[in-house]
Design a protein around this nucleic acid. Structure first.
Lengths: 235, 235
DNA sequence: CCGTATTAGTTGTTGAACGATCCTGCAATC
DNA sequence: GATTGCAGGATCGTTCAACAACTAATACGG
């Protein structure tokens, strides 16, 4: 019996060890490509070409497509194929609406799990050091980690999953901007303030701050969007 | 160019006209069977058998499965097949947690779209007439319509979609109960009260009422769950 | 009685095939 | 000149058959 400390470690590893189907692995591959903007929004993903490129059959590739369509990274048009999503302004607004609901309510959680609070703290410091060193790309991912940690305060697997999806979509949207590098930097202070309020148990104030924060971020993003829209319209 | 007012009307109709793929139609068929409890939770869905039953190929059926797995009505175990979901108590609790977040925030929406408020009213009266006539099945669906309408107050397509998914799962969960018929009847009064508060613009009070409402419903459901768990354990 | 090897049944994945649908370009028409 | 109609080609939707990979159940041997 004698269960040592390696038991938990082992079971946590088993999750990673659990083999995944080919379709899931292909979906993972495509996901990173799409999220990191390597495939521009609006691109049609040819079944034949991609199947050949990753050397899987068309059928399995189609299963991978279904997964990513459900994650809203791709859109599927019958008899036309799948395309990298081009989010409209309305869709961006809706994304932020849901974000606001989830994050503000998470931050109000009376006694958030300590693990989530720790993640919040580390995300804040991660962002600060990255900013000090001028690594704006890292600031962006730190900011994402911050918001994922905010979602985790609710202690809900479902909300965690939703937040991951929202953040993935958001990263996709960011790529329409000309210089997303420094976008997140101004929000570092707010992140720290929100983190402090959460630790102090002042969830209501944190929620209020987060609400205005998200409104501002949305407006900034929408504005960047309009610029691009005008540029492409005049081109 | 002279675009008349019928143009918008026409384009709105084209959405309904959009044909659906075979996989989606099969998914729809399976969905109703699962939701209405005709296939008991835990059942394994054999690819071969079902493919033959609905006369589609295994590949197409697998696509349909993927859709329903993403809707959380089925679960997929690698190399073992897909099963009708058996929700654990934790999962039910998590479902209600998300429900509470979405519905309570929706009900607080400052100026909800009039169409949603109308749906709210009609759902209330739908439930009342069904109860008067003793049609408990109908009371259940009216109650579901009520909560969908609550979600619609936010005016967010995403939240609408989430609510539909949550309600579908909930219907699946209800089937573990012995007599779900009269389950919803006691909530009719609360529905009417919440509807009135929303129309009066008193969202905060409506949210508070809804919160206790959902807590009570969850506890009642969990209790019913325990009964079944004991019954199956002793069997 | 326990553990192991075998076997049967199911899922995972492939490759090819064919009909259905969409897009492109060109000719015909007003 | 702009719109309509019509090939032709390309791509998607779906099916089918086959085999590899895996699981679960059975039979076997200690």
């Amino acid at each position: 019996m004698n269960a040592g400390p390696w038991l938990a470690e082992l079971s946590s590893g088993s999750a990673a060890l659990s083999r995944r189907s080919t379709a899931e692995r292909v979906a993972g591959l495509l996901r990173t490509h799409v999220i990191e903007g390597r495939i521009p929004p609006g691109t049609r993903l040819s079944e034949e070409d991609i199947a050949a490129a990753v050397s899987v059959s068309r059928n399995t590739l189609r299963e991978a497509f279904r997964l990513l369509v459900h994650e809203r990274l791709l859109v599927h048009e019958l008899n036309r194929g799948v395309f990298v999503r081009e989010a409209s302004l309305d869709e961006v607004a809706d994304l932020f609406r849901l974000r606001r609901v989830l994050e503000c309510s998470s931050v109000r959680t009376p006694e958030p799990p300590e693990a989530a609070v720790a993640r919040l703290r580390s995300a804040v410091s991660e962002g600060e050091t990255a900013a000090r060193e001028g690594q704006w790309q890292e600031v962006g991912t730190a900011n994402m980690h911050f918001h994922l940690a905010v979602g985790a305060l609710a202690g809900s697997p479902r909300i965690d999953e939703l937040m991951e999806q929202l953040m993935a979509e958001l990263r996709l949207v960011f790529h329409v901007m000309a210089a997303p590098q420094k976008f997140h930097a101004p929000y570092l202070e707010d992140n720290a303030r929100i983190c402090a309020l959460v630790q102090a148990g002042r969830g209501e104030e944190a929620a209020a701050l987060l609400d205005t924060y998200l409104t501002r971020a949305e407006q900034q993003l929408v504005q960047a969007y309009r610029v691009v829209a005008n540029a492409t319209a005049s081109a």
